[in-house]
Amino acid sequence: MDVNLGYAAWLAQKSTEIDTLELTFDDSSSVFFSLSDHTTCINVTSEPEIQEPNLD
């Protein structure tokens, strides 16, 4: 976050800008990060291609 960003400007920016970062991995699973409350979560709708456990 920019040190020059005051609270009022932050409030105004929040209402216009994208609030969530999404990252999709090469197994098509993905995670979200909320810029608003700084929480991270798994995107439950993405379905990763889990391989069969490698048993030996």
Partner: peptide, 26 residues
């Protein structure tokens, strides 16, 4: 048992095991 896990799961477990993931935010 050695089982592959999804990258999103790995990400979350790594984040939970981090000392400063929360501090570093984005």
């Amino acid at each position: 048992q050695l089982s592959p896990i999804s990258k999103a799961d790995a990400f979350m477990h790594l984040a939970n095991n981090s000392f400063n993931y929360a501090v570093l935010a984005e």
